[in-house]
Design a protein around this nucleic acid. Structure first.
Lengths: 148, 148
DNA sequence: TACTTTTGTATCGTGAACGATATAAATAAA
DNA sequence: TTTATTTATATCGTTCACGATACAAAAGTA
C-alpha cells in the first residue's frame, strides 16, 4: 500500500467531500425556494449584475457552456430567468432575472449565515478555511490554466 | 446586493470549483487506466483493504449506497471488481478487486505526485491547504453529523 | 463576393449524485 | 410461529458535469 494512495492523505478527496456535504447542507434552505446549488450560483452572478451572456456565466463559474445551457433552460422553465437573443449578435443569449428571480435574493440573503450557525462549534476550523481562501483561489487559477 | 451573496465571499463556491478542477486535472492520468475519479476513490479504499461491503465503501466515501451500487456495477462490467453475495448474510455484497483492479495500484501510485508537479509554482498555496486538512476534516465531520 | 475560420450556443451520450421507493433477507417482537 | 421492524442493496427519476459533436451567425481571408 503506497502512502500517497491513502484516502487519508488526499487533499482532493477532502475537497470533493466537503463540496458535496456543504451543498447538501444548503438544500434544506433551497427547497422552499425551489432551486438547486448550481442554480443558486447562477442567481448569485445575476444578482451581482443582471443581463449576462451564457459564456460569461460559464466563465465566472468555471463551467462549460454545455453544462450551463441546460441549467438555464430549466431555470427559464421555472420562471427564474429569461433567455433573449442578442440584438447585434443574434447567436448570443442574454440571460436576465425575472421578477421572481430577483425576489429570491431577499429570501436567500440569510442562508450563508444560517449555514455558519449550523457549524458554530467548528468556528475555528471555518475561520482557518476562510483564511485559506486566497490559497484555494491560487490553486483554482493554476488548475484552470492547465485546461486552457 | 448583499455582501454575503457575493460569489467572491463564498467558501463553498471555492470548494465546489476546486473539487471539480482537481478532478479534471486527474483525468489525463485516469484515461489510460480507463477509470473515473469516483471509481478511483473506490479503488483507493479497496487497495487499502480488499473485500468490503457496499455500505462500508459508501460510508468511507460519504456517499449514499444508491450512488455506490451503480458505480460498482459499472466497475464490475469493466472487470475491475467482483460483487459476490455474502455467505452468512446473503443480502450483503462483498466487493473484491480482480487481478486487473489490483494491478492498477502500481500504475496509479505516481499520479498524486504528477498532479503536485503540475502545480509546482503554487507549492506555497498547496502547503497551506495541506495544513488546513484537519480543519477540512472537522467541517466535513460537522456537516456529516447534520445529515444523520 | 465567395470561402474559411472562429465564435456562441445547443444537442447527445455517459457517468455521477441523491431523494424516493422497492425488495428481500435478517432480526426483533408478539 | 406469525408479524413487524430493521438492514443491505437495488431501481427509478431528475439534475449536474463534461467530452464530442452540431450548427448557424459573425468575422476574417482570398
Amino acid at each position: 500500500m503506497y502512502d500517497q494512495l491513502k484516502l487519508d492523505n488526499q487533499l482532493c478527496f477532502r475537497l470533493y467531500t466537503a463540496a458535496r456535504l456543504v451543498m447538501q447542507a444548503y438544500y434544506p434552505y433551497f427547497e422552499p425556494l425551489g432551486i438547486t446549488y448550481p442554480q443558486y450560483l447562477v442567481l448569485l452572478v445575476l444578482w451581482e449584475k443582471d443581463g449576462r451572456l451564457v459564456n460569461d456565466i460559464a466563465h465566472l463559474l468555471h463551467l462549460e457552456t454545455n453544462t450551463v445551457t441546460p441549467l438555464l433552460q430549466r431555470m427559464e422553465k421555472q420562471g427564474l430567468v429569461t433567455r433573449k437573443r442578442g440584438k447585434e449578435d443574434t447567436r448570443q443569449r442574454i440571460v436576465s432575472l425575472t421578477p421572481q428571480g430577483k425576489a429570491l435574493e431577499e429570501r436567500a440573503k440569510e442562508i450563508p449565515n444560517c449555514l455558519l450557525q449550523k457549524l458554530s462549534d467548528k468556528m475555528d476550523d471555518i475561520n482557518c478555511l476562510m483564511a485559506s481562501m486566497p490559497a484555494l483561489d491560487q490553486v483554482i487559477e493554476g488548475l484552470a490554466r492547465q485546461t486552457k
